[in-house]
Design a protein around this nucleic acid. Structure first.
Lengths: 136, 136
DNA sequence: CAGCATCCTTACAGATACTG
DNA sequence: CAGTATCTGTAAGGATGCTG
């Protein structure tokens, strides 16, 4: 797409980048974990709270509502007493699973290198460590 | 997915999920755009500010420093007067490009559906809009 | 059980000004 | 040119209490 005169590459903006749109969907702290909790099928509210470690009721509800609004999650109310609610991925939601898994895979394979890079960076730039071989 | 009652799948936690680790790296507002700006090779500070629309000097520096610390970006100083700095992805950084592109691709292909889902959701739950057959 | 409402604390991010 | 420093508003996230 030849865009304009002197520019060689098109600009990158938050508004035209497909990636940013995805991030808008899945970049919240708990969103990915909530999705993963549903990757094997339906799961109930209470079990979700137990499965996803550390999530609060508020954050779960907020997260899953957003996903529901985005069409990625289905909410299924079962009128028992007291009532039950089951959550599951929609067809659209399932299509997101694959790219997310690849990112997760990247994390599993490469996170060690990232941690090592951090240690190296920190030891190089921390005041007090003048490039001597000291690891904190 | 026949797991009823006491069958335990392992819990999902922020600390053991590879995905969360990746998110910790790339989920910031500008990170992905900065990475994309480097996907075709070296790019200088000034050009980066122009390419990534709306980013401030502060946010760029902050973002790129974090990426450098994580070992995904290289910083190359050229001692001109005044000085120049070029940024580029490391080998590790390039490996991240592929899964990120797939996510971006998902966004391009499916974002419309997400938007439609939102409209539908909002019209269903907004006070004042009874389901008297408008959308759909 | 499955939520919503409220308060509060921090992290994120923008604007602006200054420096080697 | 390529940053750093500070100030400030906003939004995310956590803690807690109440409800059908």
């Amino acid at each position: 797409m030849a865009h304009s005169s002197t520019t060689k590459q098109s600009n990158i903006s938050l508004s035209n980048c497909g990636y940013s749109k995805v991030l808008d969907i899945i970049s919240n702290k708990w969103t990915a974990l909530v999705i993963y909790a549903m990757e094997n099928g339906k799961i109930r509210y209470g079990e979700m709270l137990r499965r996803v470690e550390g999530i609060s009721k508020k954050m779960f509800t907020q997260t899953v509502r957003k996903l529901e609004r985005d069409g990625l999650v289905q909410r299924h109310i079962i009128p028992t007493v007291p009532l039950s609610v089951e959550y599951s991925l929609t067809t659209l939601g399932e299509t997101l699973l694959q790219p997310m898994k690849e990112l997760r895979q990247w994390g599993r394979e490469n996170y060690t290198q990232v941690v090592e890079a951090r240690v190296k960076y920190d030891s190089a730039y921390t005041p007090g460590s003048h490039e001597a071989g000291s690891i904190n």
